[in-house]
Amino acid sequence: MARGDAEFVEFARAASARLVHAAFLMTGDHHQAEDAAQTALVRTYASWSRVRDDDAYGYARRILVNHLVDGWRRPIREYPTEEIPEQRRDDVADEVATRRWLTAILGALSPRERAIVVLRYYFDLPEAQVARELAISVGTVKSTSSRALGKLRANGPRAADNQEACR
């Protein structure tokens, strides 16, 4: 394997789980998330010679987000039922409950709000960078983020109740 390919494999192994999870947070669909992460890695690999010495992870993230943003223009789909992960851990019940809470919270947001929430609070990007990556103004990032957090506060107790009811 060429040196560049070995570097890419190492990069992809380190980055793929986070990319898939970010895509899942934005879409709520595991299959779509895996497809989106795969697309981002394909395009990153296609440009690897150019991006390998730069911010390869940021490059892959931007491709992922833009790929999903393009999907906003497609017809709205049903929010899928969350799958329960096949894990045997003591805290599996907590994780399932957290996942359900998260699914309920994010499900109440619009696609743009979800994208901004994921970029701001999962990737911890500053507002200006979120604005650049989504090609929107910083003001739009602030207002949308504020609206999303408002929904989060409004829906939090109800989602928590649902979470308790699920236990």
Partner: peptide, 12 residues
């Protein structure tokens, strides 16, 4: 919640 629900070993 966004962090703890991350799954390792993505099957790509």
């Amino acid at each position: 919640a966004m962090r703890v629900t991350e799954r390792g070993g993505a099957p790509l």
